[in-house]
Nucleic acid binder design. Sequence first.
DNA 1: ATGTTATATGAGTAATTGCTCGCATTGACT
DNA 2: AGTCAATGCGAGCAATTACTCATATAACAT
Lengths: 221, 221
Amino acid sequence: MAPRRKLAANPRKHPEQDRSRATVGTILQAAAHVLVKRGYEAFTTNRVAEKAGVSIGSLYQYFPNKDALLVALMKRHVMEIENTVVEMVDRAATLPLQELVQLAVEQNVKSHLIEPELHRVLSEEVPSLGNLDWKKAYSRRVEARVRAAFETRRSEITVSDLDLAVFVVTRTVEAVVHNAVSERPHDLQSGALAAEVSRLIVGYLTSKPVPRKGVLRAAAE
Amino acid sequence: MAPRRKLAANPRKHPEQDRSRATVGTILQAAAHVLVKRGYEAFTTNRVAEKAGVSIGSLYQYFPNKDALLVALMKRHVMEIENTVVEMVDRAATLPLQELVQLAVEQNVKSHLIEPELHRVLSEEVPSLGNLDWKKAYSRRVEARVRAAFETRRSEITVSDLDLAVFVVTRTVEAVVHNAVSERPHDLQSGALAAEVSRLIVGYLTSKPVPRKGVLRAAAE
DNA sequence: ATGTTATATGAGTAATTGCTCGCATTGACT
DNA sequence: AGTCAATGCGAGCAATTACTCATATAACAT
């Protein structure tokens, strides 16, 4: 990049006619396209404008700077995900632990299948977007829900440190599913991966405290 | 960045006198320093040279381009890790599954504590270094070892698809530990996290096949 | 001393790119 | 038809930065 002049930015003009709303949509679509097809390295504002078929000036009429474009993209993506999540939460409220976990894992899989490539680029390639406040906020919201779900079923759960358990569970599910998108697409589609992860999590949450040392009890039946 | 002229590069001059070997060391040290303290965004060849106290010309005498610097850093880092890994593998050959897993997890924790910040920046911020061939090769080597360890103890392991199990286990351990570096440093240091993860993995590998539906068996003892 | 090679220097070049700004066009409403 | 605001345009500025090259100095060999 050349001149990173603006770090934050003024609220730029808001589209009021249909024409400009269409322009904004086109720009976002082009931005996603460039990101997915060419990667973050090729993600320049000029290229996005060109791909969108609008002038660079128009782009800056609605997005104060490059980062704003990325943020808009990410917000849209997270919102799509969160919608399907909310829907699931309602269905899951009263389920027993195992089915809850299965549902949640399948939910995570579904999220990753929305726009897998965009998701991957946004979370892996785009720099300094990982530290975004609202993204952390989203994580905290998820973790709070998970914790609440655990507390409701506290008697079934053998783990002593709930906070730590929430951490382990959320990171595990996210990482395994995320990696599977590119490395095990078939298992992801077939549900084999979701089943495996569910087993992993349920086993962890409900297993007897580990035998402190020596021979393993579980294997010995 | 401005002119990404060279994509690959000639083998550059190799240091032959002590003086130049010292220069190369200083440059690498400065490179790590800049990466850790200022992040990848501020990682410019001119800045590295300045921090090292050598001229930009000298830097390019030994590193054909910017990426070569990063690759050298990464190789050094991975080598440090792999050294301690090899040492562990020998000790672990004959251990029972549970102790093996505990050892491996603790090993992973140790790896992440070598140069945690450098490790984080290299794996999270540096773009297009995640796709590097030799890094994939390293992953495959690790996975092969894990698979071999599983096969040796096949009778204790209840999972049917070994490949899938290797995938799930390796990604889980790596991700949980990696995230813990910045988010749960205390649990990482105390060993609480390693214990938890070990329990997670051993439980997964040795638990009875999941009850197809309905009440969970594990909780019911 | 003298020549040769390895090493160090840093001002400068060329490419890249985020972003501005003056002007043109469109559309809405008289 | 005329006015004004919303929208669109794109040449070009200014900052940034990977990398070169002509030149200088140090180490070594004879």
